[in-house]
Design a protein around this nucleic acid. Structure first.
Lengths: 151, 151
DNA sequence: GCTTGCCTGTTAAAATTTAACACTTGCTAC
DNA sequence: GTAGCAAGTGTTAAATTTTAACAGGCAAGC
């Protein structure tokens, strides 16, 4: 997500997070906010350790608990192929299935919603009598910006 | 992959592994074979620790090195959402993109090739000027067998 | 038979994640 | 307003997972 007005982007993500927490009857506490804001400094993947380094309270359980909560609440994604995290830009739709375009050069992540592809994936699963509950689609590669830079 | 003739399945996987190694100019050594055979006892996801427990030589570096080699050679998949491994049934096509249907109940994994979905995913990526190199598609859910068992 | 590159064996340590438990805080019902 | 409860924190320590480093062994080509 190189071409977003990131100040705006971040502000609306924070608003959304507050709304989601309220809806869940959970609190958007200082620790959770701390992790969330660190992640939303950019759209780049950050490991738990990266985040921990920037936390006010740097103790592992604090960070891991907040990450766990934010993930379960659909506010962030666990980028499994990097074992890292990134803010989710479709938090308002808790059931969405995103496709993460992960730049291996700059770690920037662009999340898109590939509706056609997803319906094909679900169809393929159903053909095997498989009942999906959680889908990860991750593509590693080179983003637009890095592509342009090296050419 | 509940309904495969697994004896046959395993035998042909071993043959394929030998062929791939020869083609790469690499050796299908005892350690690599040990890991490979342990993984191919079933189509279930196994963690590095699971595998290590069954190895003849149980030292971590032995296991991790063999896993790394088999993964790079396209003979096994790293199941990132479980941080586990499973044998690849499309090893003959090193460029294939598989969809892993992962049963969260029995850990059995069914790998299929969703050509339509994949072409949609690639199209979506290209629309963002993203150049993909490696794609992970993982679906967590309940497999046919477990579905039937609980109903 | 000697060199070279690949692979192994081994010791240790680094990095990542979780357990356990006592304490605090905010809310709700009385 | 306060007792009780659930949710969340702080802290210590440990378990788990992964990697570094280096010495040695083995097969293949010259």
């Amino acid at each position: 997500m190189t071409n977003c007005d990131h100040t705006l982007c971040k502000t609306s993500a924070l608003k959304e997070a507050e709304r989601v927490c309220e809806q869940l009857g959970a609190r958007f506490t200082d620790q959770r906010r701390n992790v969330f804001e660190i992640l939303w400094q950019s759209h780049k993947a950050m490991t738990a350790a990266d985040i921990m380094n920037e936390m006010t309270n740097k103790q592992p359980p604090i960070t891991y608990r907040a990450l766990e909560f934010l993930k379960k609440s659909g506010l962030i994604h666990h980028v499994t192929s990097l074992n890292a995290y990134v803010g989710c830009i479709y938090a308002k739709d808790p059931n969405h299935i995103g496709q993460l375009l992960i730049c291996t050069n700059c770690r920037d992540i662009n999340e898109i919603e590939p509706k056609n592809a997803v319906s094909e994936l679900i169809k393929a699963a159903k053909n095997q009598d498989f009942t999906p509950s959680l889908t990860h689609i991750e593509m590693l590669g080179i983003c637009k910006t890095c592509n342009n830079a090296t050419s």
